[in-house]
């Protein structure tokens, strides 16, 4: 049986600096592998649509004709599945969380990748 067991800890915390971060004046904690949000690099995307198939929350929409890659940030669960399976590594995970938004919306990225010409048939430059 003991009384005032907490006093020592409490007094010490009073004398210490606060352990909390004064966000947003100070930056939030992040690690190099923190899962923040998915970033798409249009210059490497070959429109293979593996990410669309592997997305568990069906957040990714790929339009091959319009050459756009869209992601619904409100559906995305940041599971890293698309980044893992992307064959050309055009998808990467940024450590920054997405900013809060007042309305739901879809973010669109344009695919600028151009299929390199095959050595034999130089005129067949299809996307």
């Amino acid at each position: 049986m003991a009384f005032f067991e907490m006093v020592r800890t409490a007094l010490r915390t009073v004398l210490q600096q606060p352990v909390t971060i004064l966000y947003p004046a100070q930056a939030a904690k992040k690690t190099p592998i923190s899962r923040g949000h998915v970033v798409h690099d249009g210059s490497k995307c070959i429109s293979c649509s593996i990410c669309v198939k592997k997305c568990p929350s069906q957040a990714i929409i790929l339009n091959k004709e319009a050459k756009t890659w869209q992601i619904d940030r409100f559906r995305c669960v940041v599971c890293n599945s698309c980044v893992d399976t992307c064959p050309t590594k055009c998808l990467s995970m940024d450590t920054q969380y997405t900013a809060p938004a007042a309305a739901k919306g879809i973010e669109t990225f344009t695919i600028t990748y151009v299929k390199p010409p095959k050595p034999e048939k130089k005129d067949e430059q299809k996307p």
Binding site: K29, T31, I33, S34, R35, V77, V78, C79, N80, M93
Partner: peptide
Amino acid sequence: LDFMEETTGGRVIQG
């Protein structure tokens, strides 16, 4: 939680 985030990338959902 810090350890979790450093090793898995997620604070709460380790994944």
